[in-house]
């Protein structure tokens, strides 16, 4: 599969100045601005920022397989849903009884459950998806995502398509999850950790292999790599990270429904990744920020904001190659 944007780690080293300063500036702004506005008495932007940070984690995880691994997964929102239900279902049983085994409000348990269930789902579906290539892969990931969607729609106990209200948030020792600021910093810290983790993975031996497999799988096999197991491992890691983001999202919204893992939600995640650019680990964060800003701006003008959004999406594909970080990289190169 030809790549949308050339992954360009060596060029990345050279453009370090522009792009990484930009990243640091963005991260500092994320730490300061929403908090400052919140301290000034306006809770709205902290809310948006929390959503941004959580969706960024999901988008960064998607970029690990999509941007660096060349695996175009159109079912990534399923992991957000799985993660969220891994918070919702145990707290539901903690309140209403039954299934004592998982009935708990413990946040540590929720997170572990979310990560494990997501990883297992990624392992099973990935083992099948990764036997196929190209367009098959896209459609199959989409179909498996939709399978999980319909599964939760059919579960009457957990609200079916009406969704499930999380009555009490996860309990994590030392963190007051009901305090918006504390919760924001938990999410923000998680984002930093995930960016660092993915950065390490991408530049490790493992990361070199999945990037090589993206460029030319036959070549990798003839060099002696069993590309399948490496790609599967990347697929599982990305799923697990996104499951973690899902657990945060469930705590954030306090209400979960199958809609959060609809294929439109997967499409939005993909859009964030592509808009932000796939060649940098940090790219999807920019994409997520632009997506949420667009959503806010456009929906302030019209309830039909999907129309201009759709048009922009088409124009982005037709005319902007490599996303915003691709533009940054080009700027960096022409500057020096």
């Amino acid at each position: 599969m030809a790549d949308v944007s050339t992954t360009d780690p060596a060029g990345g080293a050279r453009k370090l100045s522009v792009a990484s300063w930009f990243m640091v500036a963005c991260l500092v702004a994320l730490a300061v601005i929403p908090v400052a506005i919140y301290a000034g008495g306006n809770a709205f932007w902290l809310d948006i920022a929390t959503r941004l940070v959580v969706l960024s984690i999901a988008a960064v995880s998607l970029n690990l397989i999509l941007g660096f691994g060349g695996m175009v997964s159109f079912g990534h929102a399923a992991y957000l849903g799985i993660g969220a239900y891994c918070v919702g279902i145990p707290t539901y049983h903690a309140l209403f009884g039954e299934f004592e085994l998982i009935a708990t409000n413990s946040g540590i348990f929720h997170v572990i459950l979310a990560v494990i269930v997501s990883a297992v789902f990624a392992l099973i579906t990935g083992a099948i998806c990764l036997r196929t290539k190209g367009v098959y892969f896209i459609m199959i990931t989409m179909a498996f995502g939709q399978m999980i969607f319909y599964l939760f729609v059919s579960l009457e106990t957990y609200g079916a398509d009406d969704g499930l209200v999380i009555t009490s948030r996860s309990e994590i020792p030392g963190i007051d999850m009901d305090n918006p600021l504390a919760f924001y910093f938990l999410c923000y810290g998680s984002l930093l950790a995930v960016i660092y983790l993915v950065h390490r993975i991408v530049n490790s031996r493992f990361g070199m292999v999945i990037q090589g497999a993206k460029g030319n799988e036959d070549r990798m096999r003839s060099l002696g790599y069993s590309t399948y197991v490496y790609r599967l491992a990347a697929y599982v890691i990305a799923g697990a990270i996104c499951g973690y983001a899902g657990a945060l999202l469930g705590n954030f919204t306090s209400f979960i429904s199958p809609d959060m893992m609809d294929w439109a939600a997967s499409g939005e995640l993909m859009f964030m990744v592509i808009l932000g650019g796939t060649s940098m680990v940090f790219g999807p964060v920019i994409g997520a920020a632009l997506f949420l800003l667009l959503e806010q701006l456009l929906s302030a003008f019209t309830v039909h904001w999907h129309l201009p959004f759709g048009i922009m999406l088409i124009l982005t594909v037709l005319f902007v190659k490599g996303g915003i970080s691709g533009l940054l990289a080009r700027m960096g190169r022409s500057n020096g």
Binding site: R200, S204, R205, F206, M208, V209, M220, Y225, Y230, A233
Partner: peptide, 14 residues
């Protein structure tokens, strides 16, 4: 790298 053991090394910069 293909011929120096497996590549499940996730942390050290290659």
């Amino acid at each position: 790298q293909a011929h120096t053991g497996h590549s499940f090394h996730f942390w050290r910069p290659a």
